[in-house]
Design a protein around this nucleic acid. Structure first.
Lengths: 332, 332
DNA sequence: GGACCCTACTTATACGAGTAAGTACACTAG
DNA sequence: CTAGTGTACTTACTCGTATAAGTAGGGTCC
């Protein structure tokens, strides 16, 4: 059962291979009669012809692969779904998404691996603009699809969005009446370069609103969570924001075990909207974005970018949304 | 900056293209002098030659793409990480992992999409053996890498593992002394074909052990969780197993809000080991498998499978592991 | 009635690799 | 001295596609 080639279709339809190719690709400037068109399309259909992607890529000098470097965003719950949505959307356009979560020790290694893959385009969301691989890929004519937001050189769009999500989160609890807030961070965060961006940004929000804010790093064990919760409850603070739902849900349970009333005595919020967030008692307020919208949005720019690799193509980043649930709802 | 081809290397080294190709591919039965070998390798290195994957794939009739159909397993937390591990492992071997989480309405559509992709191999974990796409891919000479476990025709290996995980989960709470157990299922599960496999399997475990077991479907809202928890606590049951951690964590919080002592009065366990599981109060016992091991294991079989597509290649499924935490530990 | 253009194609080449088959030379066996 | 056997290559073709350049026939224009 050899695969069907365009030559087979041409023979079946009684035309040359060129005609088949022109027809199926809708090449502009080619005149093809209706009768021939029908014969060819018919033959293609009957034989079940699908173009060989490798031959096509070889000829065109570019593949139909779209690269999505994930960086450490791969760990996030929203992200996994967005990738799936993006992949499906790209499939519909005839592209193939290859996402790469490999942690390359050196940018040069990433560049090597990605150039070898030879994608038609790459999605720039988790890469700093001055990443060596970005420069080399652009140099190799690989189209970039990047977020429609301004990003400082040494940061990625994801970094910016990530900070923005926490700003939205903090703003929400302040609007709900919090006046003395603890922001809980996971241990891994302390070493992350993002911290230099996040902490001042949140401080600014708190200062503008005239509320108290302090940061605390919490180990992800029940003991550490309970110790933290006890401290916070005793210190008169009235809201705790978790860096993510993975932190906020444990905090919620620690507070419950101490008999602290959430949200009356202490509000809690997270970021990511993990599945458990909507079902825990009390349900957890969080910040998220539409994963489908994100996936579609990422995919939407790709066809244009591939056709005109030199022109920058940007995708809209879906708006961050507060999901208000019981844990920050004082009417609860 | 045109990409470097093997012709460039040949010219630089002063030999023919064929020599370069034979040399770089270690083609058996070809004699090449040490002097030439060094000249060619040197030239390749100096020019930074990397073979064009599309040309190679066209010539060989197979790509270096490995397809991983995800099915609904994509939703699982362990899985997302395993994919990343597998992708990294395959990269090291020169393969490219393409995972597809698209929900195809019809098997024929999946088959079409996957054949068009033309992978060298596919990883069979979430596909039922009688899936139309499997048959067509095998027919097209695409190598299958499948789990080293026996699987009935209309089920996937993942289905079996999924049931096994719950069996391990149930066995664990029985060993911990549970005598009257509720098994909580998410609403989506009721419609799933897996239910016909899971329920009898768990019933058998309970009957063998002489303990009581009943199944309950729980909506993923705090209200439903609390209503369920109240019912269970009132009915004298002493353990509740959640179909997954996403269900078990909310159950834990619902029990806490009712003042039910976990694990003393009621044990709780889940499956998946989501990040929050280890940090909630009390920490949640769960069942998981080593994601790195799984990823490596999946990847390990691929090179062999690609070289000998007709011989079946099987990968070892890592053992399921109970992560014993406070929520089932009576000494707690 | 030739120049010119339009339609509807076909012919021929290129993309970059892998590989069967051929060649040229050196060495050995008989 | 010739046939045979390695060694160390090269030549020539192939994979399936896209597309520039060519062609054949009919119609229009002056």
């Amino acid at each position: 059962m050899k695969p069907v080639t365009s030559a087979d279709v041409a023979r079946e339809a009684g035309v040359s291979r060129a005609t088949v190719s022109y027809l199926l690709n809708n090449t502009p400037g080619q005149a093809i009669s209706d009768a021939t068109r029908r014969r060819v399309l018919d033959a293609a259909e009957r034989l079940g012809y699908t173009p060989n992607r490798n031959a096509r890529a070889l000829r065109l000098g570019r593949s139909d692969i779209v690269l999505f470097p994930l960086g450490d965003a791969a760990l996030s719950h929203v992200f996994a779904h967005a990738i799936n949505a993006c992949s499906a959307a790209l499939n519909r356009e005839g592209f193939t998404l290859v996402s790469d979560a490999t942690a390359y020790p050196h940018p040069e290694q990433a560049a090597g691996a990605w150039l070898r893959l030879g994608p038609a385009a790459f999605i720039d969301l988790t890469l700093p603009a001055d990443h060596g691989a970005v420069v080399r890929m652009l140099g190799a004519g690989i189209a970039r699809v990047s977020a429609a937001i301004d990003v400082p050189d040494h940061l990625s769009a994801m970094d910016i969005i990530s900070v923005e999500a926490r700003r939205v989160q903090l703003t929400h609890v302040i609007e709900q009446g919090a006046a003395d807030i603890v922001y809980a961070l996971p241990p891994a965060f302390a070493k992350s370069p993002k911290s230099v961006l996040l902490l001042p940004a949140l401080d600014a929000v708190a200062t503008d609103a005239g509320v108290g804010l302090r940061f605390e790093t919490v180990e992800t064990t029940p003991q550490a969570m309970r110790a933290g919760a006890k401290r916070w409850a005793g210190s008169g603070c009235d809201a705790v924001c978790g860096y993510s739902d993975d932190l906020a849900v444990p905090i919620l349970t620690a507070l419950a075990s101490l008999g602290v009333d959430v949200p009356a005595a202490m509000m809690v919020s997270g970021v990511d909207d993990i599945p458990a967030a909507s079902a825990v008692t009390p349900s957890l307020s969080t910040v998220t974005w539409s994963v489908d919208e994100l996936g579609e949005s990422l995919a939407a720019g790709v066809p244009d970018a591939v056709l005109h690799p030199s022109e920058p193509v940007r995708y809209a980043v879906p708006e961050l949304r507060v999901v208000v649930r019981d844990s920050t709802d004082r009417r609860y």
